[in-house]
Amino acid sequence: MTVSIIRFGGSNCDRDAERALSHLEIDAEIVWHEDGLPAETTGIVLPGGFSYGDYLRAGAMAARSPIMAEVRDAAADGVPVLGVCNGAQVGCESGLTDGAFTTNESARFQCEHVYLRVERDDTPWTEAYDEGEVLEIPIAHGEGRYEIDDDRLEELEAENRVLFRYCDEDGELTEDANPNGSKHNVAGVLGDRDSVAVLMPHPERVTLPDIGGTDGQGVLRGLESV
């Protein structure tokens, strides 16, 4: 099995993802978007960064590059797809997931550790955790506020497709614990299938034990679920 980490012009967490997956002994390679999706791809990471300089809207350009049609096809075939940070923005812009990640309420770039509550433990991305478990994972974004029509959000919640929410250390969903003004503290959502997930926080940055935690490992393990 090989996980393809899609590199766009301006991706900058592609190597972090590769390093983190290598630590977990998950075979992965970085794929330049113009080269297309390798046939042997068994998992896909849309990494963080600033693809196309965030022109127009974060993720807008990358979402419309030809490789994303291949990614959508692969996702429809059940290949696990994980979008992290800019990759989450690309995921929403490309229609893999609902909603949009837009300008933080603070209008600032925020780089800090946050707490996430695991909303479901029966998905490939969260099998390693328990429902309600609190993870500590860093964010680093200026456009991470989850925005979606209220009715659509209600449907999404009814369908149990919210995967992670920002919470405090005790798992409470407070306004203070919401770093960017996301609706209903949403930090990550699932696509039509549970094998597609996007989140703004960076699990690959809390995977190597030497650099501040291992809470993100379980999320990356979802890429093995073929």
């Binding site: 127009l56 807008a60 929403c92 812009e93 909603g99 979606i148 029509d149």
Partner: peptide, 9 residues
């Protein structure tokens, strides 16, 4: 529809 606007927002 396809690029300039994001219909979600």
């Amino acid at each position: 529809e396809r690029l300039l606007a994001n219909p979600t927002i």
